[in-house]
């Protein structure tokens, strides 16, 4: 009887501590992700002014798919994917997908210049203070999030996207 009690006491205590360590390790893997916006999350709403001076609010696009891209004029991989984005924007605009290409903290001149060079027609919101970039936990650029018609993040990637990638992503968020 006494021996049994000892066994259970030790087992339960060891199990409790192991569980505490296990849970801490488990949540340590996600502590970073908690501060980021990830697929499956509701995309935080934001208001920014775009390069044409128009106010852009994410929640206004409810009911549409949103291709949310974070970029900079000086970033080569961003530059590479821009023409593809423009090409697919023309295709999917009619099918209810919008592109918001959020520029990370650059001047109007730099962005206008870039827009004109690639004849971009989608909206380019300017995140001058990087508030949105920070809130979304964007690390390296380019980072693209696709958001479905309910405002939920479908996919998040930091790759430089090919034409094919963009088509696939657009297809998934088409309402």
């Amino acid at each position: 009887m006494k021996r049994n009690g000892r066994f259970w006491f030790r087992s339960i205590l060891l199990a409790l501590i192991a569980a505490a360590i296990g849970y801490t390790v488990y949540s340590s893997f996600f502590i970073k992700e908690r501060t980021l916006v990830n697929s499956g999350d509701q995309a935080p709403d934001f208001v920014l002014t775009d390069v044409n001076g128009k106010e852009v609010r994410l929640s206004d696009y409810r009911g549409k798919g949103v291709f949310l891209n974070f970029w900079g004029t000086w970033c080569k991989p961003c530059e590479r994917e821009m023409p593809y984005m423009e090409r697919q924007f023309k295709v999917y605009k009619e099918q209810g997908v919008e592109i918001l290409a959020v520029n990370v903290g650059e001047s109007n001149i730099a962005v206008e210049d870039f827009r004109d060079k690639y004849r971009l027609t989608f909206s380019i919101p300017l995140d001058k203070n990087r508030d949105v970039t920070r809130a979304y936990g964007i690390g390296p650029i380019p980072t693209t999030l696709t958001i479905d018609k309910n405002g939920k993040v479908v996919e998040k990637t930091s790759r430089s996207l090919s034409n094919k990638d963009i088509v696939q992503m657009m297809e998934k968020i088409k309402p």
């Binding site: 205590l13 501590i17 360590i21 801490t24 390790v25 340590s28 502590i31 970073k32």
Partner: peptide, 19 residues
């Protein structure tokens, strides 16, 4: 401080102290 093995080490220290 966020790496799993360091957390495990701290947990083992706690376990050692308790036992």
């Amino acid at each position: 401080y966020g790496s799993w093995w360091f957390i495990v080490l701290l947990g083992m220290l706690a376990l050692s102290i308790i036992v």
